[in-house]
Design a binder for these strands. Structure first.
Lengths: 348, 348
DNA sequence: CTGTTAGCGCTTTCAA
DNA sequence: TTGAAAGCGCTAACAG
């Protein structure tokens, strides 16, 4: 956008032979304008292919029409679902959304918020979970505080301890607990957990839930039952391979996300182990495609789009007084065919 | 962003006891500033948690740091992949991306471009294919032309006839043709096509490719071999159900996208037909997860992220002179296990 | 109802 | 080097 003569409101006004103010009013419909004048302005604007300069509008004090969303990875169906919800609500309110992807890099997360702040986005939705790191939390709070003082709204999806922001909290821990219990009830006694990076609150909460559910049923998980990887398909694949390598005897593999489950299942299959006959596998999130798998994946369903919708909504009707509201959404265990009652171990 | 006293550069300047100009220069590093003064400015900025107002910067003529991307649906892995590529390049160049989703609504597509134009995005990447509609094309051209005159860059992914924009063109037609030929070579003679909306150029090109490939092998497709649906999983599911309903005797179902194939396979499975034993199914795009399906999906692979990267790159180093460059990317047939040589028809 | 005018916050000549 | 001042394009008082 270096060169080029932009058509400005002044051009329109001149062409329509009215004042700048009238042109502005005619275009925005803020105040009544004599019909013929308005017609002239509209015609001139169309003729000149005029588009208002959003920066000038923002600077001049018009209300901000931009909201920001920051996610880890847009290719992750979990985030895609949430963002879809955010966009739906934003769209309904005539807002434009700026999307930033951080690839789960804490520093980038901070940088994105700063950029959104610079854009004077009227609201920021943080969809990635927090990093369990004191100094990061402090830095994020330091970034958000002045933003909020300037009238900016902030909403987060999932737990951000000490962030004083409106929160949409899916019941990760409860969902995980319920899943663990369900698997125990099915008859499983030997478990392995394929997990994402432990410094993400979402992952930590889910793992805690698994632990609690199993412990309640009398099964203790040891460190050797955990196999961590990145929060994506390849992370699941790698973790499952580590599990196979370690000759872990689990009859049920709990994973902290559907995407990881996907990779894990492929790894198991490649190692000659059939799901669910040889080993049951559970996912988390209920991303759209897992019901199309063969076998369909047993998982903890989260209302992804709703998470996004609620977060955006919360940010939008935020009143300065009511900070730190939390909207809890429950998680539901969906038993499908990737899990079965464990059979007696086959001879090999 | 209604209320709230924003910290401005003037506050920083005052606090650092320098002039506005000096503060600006110190922060941007445009010109040399005496070291101690710069220190003071930086310190003041940090102390006040100053963030420059991007709108003011943009208005004052600083270079734009925003690019726009418009897609149909962020939850579609096809678009997610492309956008990921776009974001990678944008990020590498220190640009912020504004993402708009249109849900394949032609009007919204237009509206999004207009909004991006208002934001004075330095470049716009159109990832959805064009609509095969003269008046829409005209309207889009009318929106883009003044934008371009104002120095804006435009790049599109897939064919946009008559748009004079830099284009990244995956070989949809050639890929489809190759797939059709491959399936014929495998032994299939009776085909059905599960397709998205025919008014999308991408879909049209793929269908044309299927037709050509088959015709070249002596198989003509009739209208009764086509089953259309929306470009998503549910569209594929519905189309496949229509196919089943019609008792179509295809031994091979060609689809115009992996996502649709996903739904189609589930529909077939629910109808008691096994893939690939009873019927072979092919996809298109090679979205990340299809290799994790059981059976893995035979598909036409497109380098999704690269499409996005190239488009963004093209838009970025666009010189006003070299308009309408086209970068072709080839498509590759990936034979996996969802397709096999057709067996003699089983008795029922 | 319409026009005049004062900024919004920042960058950038132009002088000093 | 630094500072003063002129806008960038638009909206919103404030007068007419």
């Amino acid at each position: 956008m270096s060169d080029g003569p932009h058509v400005t409101l002044e051009d329109v006004a001149r062409s329509a032979e009215v004042s700048l103010a009238t042109a502005s009013r005619a275009l925005n419909g803020t105040t009544r304008v004599r019909d013929d004048l308005r017609e002239r302005v509209l015609a001139a604007a169309a003729r000149l292919a005029y588009t208002p300069n959003a920066h000038a509008q923002a600077l001049a004090g018009a209300s901000r029409r931009t909201v920001g969303v920051v996610c880890h990875d847009i290719s992750d169906p979990y985030f895609a679902g949430i963002i879809r919800g955010v966009m739906r609500v934003a769209d309904r309110n005539g807002l434009v959304v700026m999307l930033a992807a951080t690839f789960a890099d804490p520093d980038k997360e901070l940088a994105c918020v700063s950029a959104l702040r610079a854009q004077r986005a009227s609201a920021i939705v943080l969809t990635g979970s927090a990093f369990e790191d004191r100094s990061w939390e402090r830095a994020m709070a330091a970034e958000l505080e002045p933003y909020r003082r300037g009238g900016g709204r902030v909403a987060v999806v999932t737990r951000h301890r000490s962030l004083r922001a409106d929160t949409v909290a899916p019941d990760n821990r409860g969902g995980a607990r319920a899943m663990a219990e369900a698997m125990h009830r099915l008859g499983h006694r030997r478990f392995a957990v394929v997990t994402g990076p432990g410094d993400l609150t979402t992952v930590a909460d889910r793992v805690t839930g698994f632990r609690e559910g199993l412990a309640g049923a009398g099964v203790e998980l040891s460190e050797r039952d955990f196999f961590a990887g990145s929060s994506d398909r390849d992370g699941g694949y790698a973790a499952a391979n580590a599990l196979i390598e370690a000759k872990h005897r689990a009859t049920c593999v709990l994973t902290t996300s559907d995407v990881m489950a996907l990779g894990a299942i492929t790894a198991l299959r490649e190692a000659g182990r059939t799901v669910p006959d040889d080993v049951s596998v559970t996912g988390f999130d209920d991303i759209p495609l897992v019901r199309d798998l063969a076998p369909p994946l047993t998982t903890v369903a989260l209302p992804l789009e709703r998470l996004g919708e609620e977060a955006m909504q919360l940010a939008l009707d935020g009143t300065t007084s009511a900070r730190g509201r939390t909207r809890r959404l429950s998680a539901e265990v969906l038993l499908r065919d990737s899990t079965v009652k464990p059979r007696r171990r086959r001879r090999r």
